[in-house]
Design a protein around this nucleic acid. Structure first.
Length: 183
DNA sequence: TGCACGATGAAC
DNA sequence: TTCATCGTGCAC
């Protein structure tokens, strides 16, 4: 496994979203290494994207999104689940990619289809907010050899309030993979 | 200091 | 379609 470096995340957000599909999310804690293959993501393009949290501007909550690329932006949703994003592009751009579903590879229990369940299975919580993904305990990696992936594009989930931004095809998932959260 | 509302998931 | 459950952002 080869850990993705800063330069991977410091690129166009849609490109990063596409390229994250098929990569491996790895979290090491308490001597246990949990691994999931990323199969579904959503791109959030910055303050002008009304569906993105950064559209609210720089706040205590969104400051990680406004920071440098390659860091984890993790927040609590509906008071009971966590969602994990990867910050993309240069500092201040405030864009990110939400990880929506993973295929269980190692040491994962329970469902992993959906951003909340993904975090629960991977033991990801607010303590990892702002974590540098170049760390040795929480990062994303690829195998030595990777093959081409068929990608499906759909509107993002749960962002109907965002007007025209709700219709844009910024949700991506691996075609025919059985671990995506929704068709 | 109060309050409406989620980038959700599960039950009914 | 409803609800559990609480942090965040904004109004007052």
């Amino acid at each position: 496994m080869l850990k993705l470096s800063r330069s991977f995340y410091d690129r166009d957000t849609v490109d990063v979203a596409h390229d994250l599909l098929g990569k491996y999310l790895i979290h090491r804690s308490h001597g246990i290494e949990r691994i999931g293959k990323i199969v579904e993501v959503e791109a959030y393009l910055g303050p002008h994207d009304l569906a993105a949290h950064s559209a609210k501007g720089l706040t205590p909550r969104t400051k990680i999104m406004f920071g440098p690329p390659g860091h984890a932006y993790i927040y609590m949703i509906y008071g009971m689940y966590f969602c994990m994003n990867v910050v993309t592009e240069q500092e201040g751009h405030a864009s990110a990619v939400l990880l929506r579903a993973i295929e269980p590879i190692q040491n994962l229990e329970g469902k992993t289809q959906g951003p909340g369940l993904l975090c629960r299975a991977m033991r990801i919580d607010k303590n990892l907010n702002g974590c540098d993904l170049e760390s040795d305990t929480f990062f994303i990696a690829q195998t030595e050899e990777s093959s081409a992936i068929d990608i499906i594009a759909r509107p993002r989930i749960g962002v109907d309030y965002a007007g025209k931004w709700a219709k844009k095809l910024l949700r991506f998932y691996i075609k025919n993979n059985s671990y995506i959260s929704r068709k």
